[in-house]
């Protein structure tokens, strides 16, 4: 049991008496009330729990909280201070991607990380970046379309 400092969505949280081996996912959900990241498998197979650590997508179900020393971003931290959605989130709404929606937080985090480094992803890039994320409802066709739509919007807003 230790005291840990966790930087999440720009805020620093001090957590007393936390077992450092606790997966980051459960600290986010149970201790910080950030339930956007989901539990699907607990073994890095489905991607429902995807968050960013220093901008890179990680499976928070399998990352011990003690190892989460970087800046963490969850889906709750994507929209700006005024609540404006990011182009990725907006594309997900515009294209009506979700069915049950349970996987979509993880999908959006994976897509956001992809587009940060790659403004013009090919289908193969999308396969590689989104491959770790399962959608049991089978919304992959729209996920691909939304990634492309968001990429186009991002490129436009940067020019």
């Amino acid at each position: 049991m230790a005291t840990l400092r966790l930087r999440v969505n720009g805020e620093t949280h001090t957590l007393e008496d936390v077992d450092g081996s606790t997966p980051l996912l459960w600290v986010l959900r149970d201790e910080l009330g950030l339930v956007g990241a989901k539990y699907g498998c607990g073994i890095s197979q489905c991607g429902a729990c995807t968050v960013h650590v220093d901008g890179a997508p990680v499976r928070s179900c399998s990352l011990p909280v003690a190892a989460a020393t970087g800046a963490i971003t969850t889906i709750e931290g994507l929209a700006d201070a005024q609540g404006e959605l990011t182009p990725v989130q907006q594309a997900w709404v515009d294209l009506d991607v979700a069915q049950c929606g349970y996987c979509q937080s993880g999908q959006i985090m994976a897509a956001t990380a992809l587009l940060r480094n790659n403004p013009r992803p090919t289908d193969a890039d999308i396969d590689a970046a989104m491959g770790p994320n399962i959608c049991r409802c089978g919304t992959y066709i729209r996920i691909r379309a939304a990634v492309k739509a968001a990429a186009a919007n991002l490129r436009e807003s940067r020019t």
């Binding site: 959605l85 989130q89 929606g101």
Partner: peptide, 10 residues
Amino acid sequence: GVDNEALVRG
């Protein structure tokens, strides 16, 4: 979907 905005905000 009516919940889409809430969904993408987590």
